[in-house]
């Protein structure tokens, strides 16, 4: 993948993530009011699949969290940043081990997305009481991550996508 192509992909992924976050902000949270299930994670999982280097996927994530913070504003930035950072760290590590498929990596990412948000919220509010939300939030994150993983797996395996990313770059003609 050449640099221009990579940059275009990154831009598209960031835009898609922001659109997903925007849509998600209208959905009521089923568990902890204010907590998000993390469907914007779909883009991070896809980025881990598309870019050979982890740092390119990390760049997409950082851009998404920073821009998302500009749009959403204020306090929720802290929680989404903590969730995103922990989730990404875990997913990048699990991917490196080479033992896990994309669906499982994504499920773990979904779990730690919510785990990180809860940890940050507990730190902000100086209390351990919020951990009583962990069963509901943790399982919801696991389920959302599984779903995201299955979608991304289908996406990466689709014939149209495989054809699309193999279009030769013009300069190699």
């Amino acid at each position: 993948m050449n640099n221009t192509r990579k940059l275009v992909f990154m831009g598209l992924l960031v835009a898609a993530a922001l659109a997903l976050s925007f849509v998600e902000s209208f959905l009521p949270s089923p568990v902890l009011p204010g907590a998000k299930l993390g469907f914007a994670n779909l883009v991070t999982v896809a980025a881990l699949c598309i870019f050979p280097r982890t740092r390119d996927a990390a760049l997409v994530l950082v851009a998404r969290v920073l821009l998302g913070g500009v749009f959403a504003g204020g306090a929720s930035f802290l929680y989404s940043a903590a969730g995103a950072a922990l989730s990404f760290g875990v997913m990048a590590f699990l991917e490196r081990t080479g033992r896990f498929g994309i669906v499982v990596v994504s499920a773990a990412g979904g779990f730690f997305h919510n785990f990180g948000q809860l940890a940050m919220a507990s730190a902000v509010i100086s209390s351990r009481a919020l951990w009583s939300y962990l069963p509901a939030l943790g399982l919801a994150g696991l389920a959302a991550g599984l779903l995201v993983g299955i979608v991304v797996k289908g996406w990466m395996e689709s014939a149209a996508w495989k054809h699309f990313i193999r279009i030769p770059d013009p300069e190699f003609k």
């Binding site: 699949c49 991917e95 033992r99 498929g101 994309i102 499982v104 990466m156």
Partner: peptide, 15 residues
């Protein structure tokens, strides 16, 4: 990244 779970089913389930 591998696209299937064939790598290690047991490790995946344990995780």
């Amino acid at each position: 990244m591998p696209l299937s779970n064939r790598k290690s089913k047991i490790a995946s389930l344990l995780l």
